[in-house]
């Protein structure tokens, strides 16, 4: 809705000043990495999202934005939903750009301008450029998923439990995920549950990409709705 777009723009303008510089720097690094050291480096482009998300929490607190949200003619729920969409978009856009960079990176084979051609390290680099699209694509998708999920999760716990507990929340999440994955793998390798690792490994790139993006979008909407509901009941 229009309101949510306005909020996303608002958030971006809040973070842009602080985030612009490091974002450009990171973008330059990842793009040059993609062209010179291996197309998989393009995944790092997604890190630029951090530059435009992290400043928001500290600014909102310092500048007493809760009062502003009470004054602006926008529904509180839309303010929250907008924030979640913002986090998603700020991951989605660099993800798309990274994917678009892959073809030129592969084609250009710019690594050839690097010194020490023929050395062992350059051999590794060359291999990266000779491999398939699949590798870097999956890297990008996975990077996108992890980072996007982490920020959505932090926003979710932050708004409901307070942003001071962000680090704790992430720790809890990491522990939970590790525990779950370890358990599943252990159970799987002892055939207690059927985990078809082969099938997972052979999943088509495009399918993986679309499923992950859709999944994260769903998570974004879901967490956004839950948070909006909880937060709008709170007093400003």
């Amino acid at each position: 809705m229009k309101d949510m777009l306005k909020i996303m723009r608002f958030d971006f303008l809040t973070a842009a000043d602080t985030g612009y510089f490091p974002a450009v720097f990171l973008a330059a690094l990842s793009v040059s990495g993609a062209f010179l050291f291996g197309p998989g480096c393009a995944a790092a482009l997604i890190l630029t999202s951090i530059c435009f998300i992290l400043p928001l929490t500290s600014v909102a607190e310092k500048s007493e934005f809760h009062k502003l949200y009470g004054i602006l003619p926008v529904k509180r729920k839309n303010i929250t939903r907008g924030r979640f969409l913002y986090i998603f978009m700020l991951h989605f856009i660099p993800e798309m750009i990274a994917l678009l960079l892959l073809k030129p990176a592969f084609t250009l084979k710019a690594y050839r301008i690097l010194p020490n051609q023929g050395s062992a390290s350059l051999q590794l680099i060359e291999n990266a450029f000779l491999s398939e699209f699949r590798g870097p694509c999956m890297k990008i998708f996975i990077f996108f998923s992890i980072s996007c999920f982490a920020f959505l999760y932090m926003e979710f716990t932050g708004q409901i439990f307070g942003h001071e507990n962000d680090i704790k929340s992430i720790m809890v999440l990491l522990l939970t995920v590790t525990a779950v994955v370890t358990t599943l793998t252990a159970l799987g390798s002892h055939d207690i549950i059927q985990v078809d690792f082969e099938k997972i490994r052979n999943i088509k790139t495009l399918t993986a990409g679309i499923s992950l993006n859709t999944l994260l979008f769903m998570i974004c909407l879901l967490l956004g709705e839950i948070t909006a509901g909880k937060v709008s009941a709170k007093e400003l």
Partner: peptide
């Protein structure tokens, strides 16, 4: 107390608020 982004200028803040009204 001020409820606007302290690290921004009045010009930037105007840009932020304009679309809402």
């Amino acid at each position: 107390s001020l409820y606007l982004a302290e690290h921004l200028t009045a010009k930037q803040i105007e840009k932020q608020l304009k679309p809402f009204y």
